[in-house]
Design a binder for these strands. Sequence first.
DNA 1: TCGATCCTGTAG
DNA 2: CTACAGGATCGA
Length: 256
Amino acid sequence: MPELPEVEAVCRKLRTVEGARIAAARVFRCASATLPRRIAGRRIHRIERRGKHILIRLDSGFTLHTHLRMSGNLYSIPNHCLHPAAARVIVELHDGRGIILEDNRALARMEAVSSEKLDQRLARQLGPEPLSEQFTVDAFVATARAARQPAKIFLMDQRRVAGLGNIYAAEALFRARIGPCRVIQGISRVRLAKLHSAIVAILNDAVQSACIAYEAPGEFAEAEAFPLAVYDREGEPCWVCGRAIRRIPQRGRSTY
DNA sequence: TCGATCCTGTAG
DNA sequence: CTACAGGATCGA
């Protein structure tokens, strides 16, 4: 499921547990064994997002750090006893509610770690937030000038920009009319500026769509879904030129 | 900087 | 049955 927009929607919806106190936690399968004793009794201070990472700040200097990877989901339920079968972590709150990390593929990760160390680690591993003031055209161009990667690989590299994944990287390149295999270094400043604004516009729109979809799943949300111009549209006609969209492998993943 | 790998589910 | 899935990490 999740790239930046979906993770943002998860965070916003999860904010109803801010202020709640954790009673206990249960982990299943290979989830972190030290997690329960590190978070039991702590209060949830606030919920933040960094790239695709979800940060549940506790009052103890620890953070409940979650990454959904490919197939994870994180949400609260009114009664922690009524958890789904695919739950990997159940955080039981004092008020009876529960926070569920669900993932049938078991790729998602949740850990309780020192906030300071986590922030240092994320600062090292992640580039600027694309929806923040930090993400300027100048900074983006400077980063691109120093990289020799194909454009699509560059955009998916979390150290360059935080939060883009396979879908929105392809969509942004398409909107900016940049071939995914072109080396990012050789692209003109004007076109990089176009790519920069495409990234911001697409992510903003996708956040809106994701929030609607998470808030009220159904036909209305379906109608408001972010329209994907190229992703998963192999063989279908391009909305601009009418020719069939092609799929190529890049680094073992599909690019459209 | 690359492919292989972690898992399970689903589409073809 | 195989191929592939919105991700990231590890070792070569």
